[in-house]
C-alpha cells in the first residue's frame, strides 16, 4: 500500500472487478438453492424473456426462480447497496470511521416497532403487513427524535447528534427489551428471528415497497460525495469554503436514515454491512467519497447477496440468520482492515 492516493487506473480496475463481483453474485443468487436447477437452463430462461430462444424450465422451476429466488436476490441487492452507501455517508458526515447506518436510532426504533407488532399489543398487529410498517415508523420516529434532541440547536454539531443517537437508542432498546420480556416465549423467538435479519420472506411485494425509497436515497447519498469530501476538513472550514453545512447534513442524514429504515423494515437488522463495505472500498480506492459511495453501492449489493447465499447453504436445509453471517464475516474483516489502516497511516 503506497501512501499516495490511488491512481485513476487503480480506481478503474477496482470498479471493473466490483462489477464482475456483482454479476457473479446475481448468478449465485439465481442459481444456488435447495432445488438444483442447471445454471445454463436459468440463463436460457432469462434470455428467453428478452425474446431469444425458448425456456426449458418446468413451470414449477420457473416459479422457484421468478417468485422465490429473484425477489430475494433483488431485495438482497437493494439492502446491500442501501446499507453500504448509508454507512459510507454516515462515516463522511460524522467524520467518524465507526459510524454505521444504525447510529441515530434506526435500529433501536425499528426493533421497538417490530417487537410491538410481533408481541401484538394491540391485537391483530402480528401480520406480514403491520410488522414492517411499525418497524419503519419506529425507525423514522427514532431518527426524528434524535434530530430533535441533538441536531437543531444553534451550536449542534456531529458530536451532539451522535450522543443524542446513543441516548435515544438506549432508551428505545430498553423499551423493546421490556416489551419482549412481557411476552410469550413464542413471541420472543420471533422477535429474535426478526432482529437477526433475513431475506427469507422476500417477495416482489416487499421489493416494490422498498424500491422507491432505496433508489431515491441511494441517489442522494451518491450525489453527496462531493459535499462530504469538502466536509472532510471539518464543519467550520467547510462553511468558510461555502458549504451550507447544516443543510447538507440534514439532507444527507435524512436520506440515509430513510433508506435504511425502509430496508430494515423489510429485512430486519443486518449488521456490519454499513461499516465494513465502505471501509474495504476506502482501502482500495482512497478516501474520496466521490469514489467510495458509488463503488460501495455495487460492492454492498454483491456482498449481501453472497452473504445470503452462504446463509442459505451452509446449514441447509435450514437457514442461518443473515445478520449472523454478515457479522461472522464482518467482524474479522473489520479487524484486518484496522490493522491494515494502522500500517498505512505512517
Amino acid at each position: 500500500m503506497s501512501s499516495n492516493p490511488p491512481t485513476a487506473r487503480r480506481v478503474a480496475l477496482v470498479s471493473a472487478l466490483t462489477l464482475v463481483g456483482l454479476v457473479a453474485a446475481v448468478v449465485c443468487g439465481l442459481a444456488i438453492g435447495p432445488t438444483s436447477i442447471a445454471t445454463a437452463k436459468i440463463i436460457g430462461d432469462v434470455v428467453s424473456h428478452v425474446g431469444i430462444g425458448h425456456s426449458s424450465l418446468s413451470p414449477l422451476q420457473s416459479t422457484v426462480i421468478w417468485q422465490l429466488r429473484a425477489p430475494r436476490l433483488v431485495l438482497g441487492l437493494l439492502a446491500g447497496a442501501m446499507l453500504a452507501v448509508a454507512g459510507g455517508t454516515y462515516q463522511g458526515v460524522f467524520r467518524n470511521p465507526l459510524a454505521d447506518p444504525y447510529l441515530l436510532g434506526v435500529a433501536a426504533g425499528a426493533g421497538l416497532g417490530a417487537t410491538f407488532a410481533i408481541v401484538d399489543i394491540g391485537g391483530g398487529l402480528n401480520t406480514p403487513t403491520w410488522t414492517p410498517l411499525l418497524a419503519f415508523a419506529g425507525a423514522m420516529v427514532a431518527v426524528a427524535f434524535t434530530w430533535g434532541v441533538g441536531g437543531r440547536g444553534l451550536h449542534s454539531n456531529a458530536a451532539t447528534l451522535i450522543l443524542a443517537g446513543v441516548a435515544v437508542s438506549a432508551l428505545l432498546t430498553s423499551m423493546q427489551t421490556f416489551l419482549q420480556q412481557q411476552s410469550s416465549s413464542n413471541s420472543i423467538a420471533r422477535v429474535y428471528i426478526w432482529l437477526l435479519g433475513s431475506l427469507a420472506s422476500a417477495s416482489w411485494r416487499s421489493v416494490w415497497l422498498v424500491f422507491p425509497y432505496v433508489i431515491l436515497c441511494t441517489a442522494i447519498c451518491v450525489l453527496s460525495g462531493r459535499a462530504l469530501d469538502v466536509m472532510s476538513v471539518g464543519e467550520d472550514e467547510s462553511r468558510s469554503l461555502g458549504l451550507p453545512v447544516r443543510r447538507v447534513r440534514f439532507i444527507v442524514i435524512a436520506a440515509s436514515s430513510l433508506g435504511t429504515a425502509a430496508i430494515v423494515s423489510a429485512v430486519g437488522l443486518i449488521g456490519f454491512v454499513g461499516i465494513i463495505v465502505p471501509h474495504i472500498v476506502r482501502l482500495l480506492v482512497g478516501t474520496s467519497y466521490r469514489r467510495i459511495l458509488p463503488i460501495s453501492v455495487v460492492f454492498g449489493a454483491a456482498f449481501l447477496v453472497f452473504a445470503d447465499t452462504l446463509a442459505r447453504t451452509v446449514m441447509a436445509p435450514s437457514e442461518l440468520p443473515l445478520g449472523v453471517v454478515t457479522a461472522a464475516i464482518g467482524a474479522p474483516v473489520f479487524v484486518i482492515i484496522l490493522s491494515l489502516r494502522r500500517r498505512m497511516v505512517r
Partner: peptide, 11 residues
C-alpha cells in the same frame, strides 16, 4: 484557519 484539518488521503 489557525489549526487547519489535514484530511489524510486527499491529494
Amino acid at each position: 484557519p489557525q489549526h487547519p484539518e489535514v484530511p489524510a488521503g486527499m491529494t
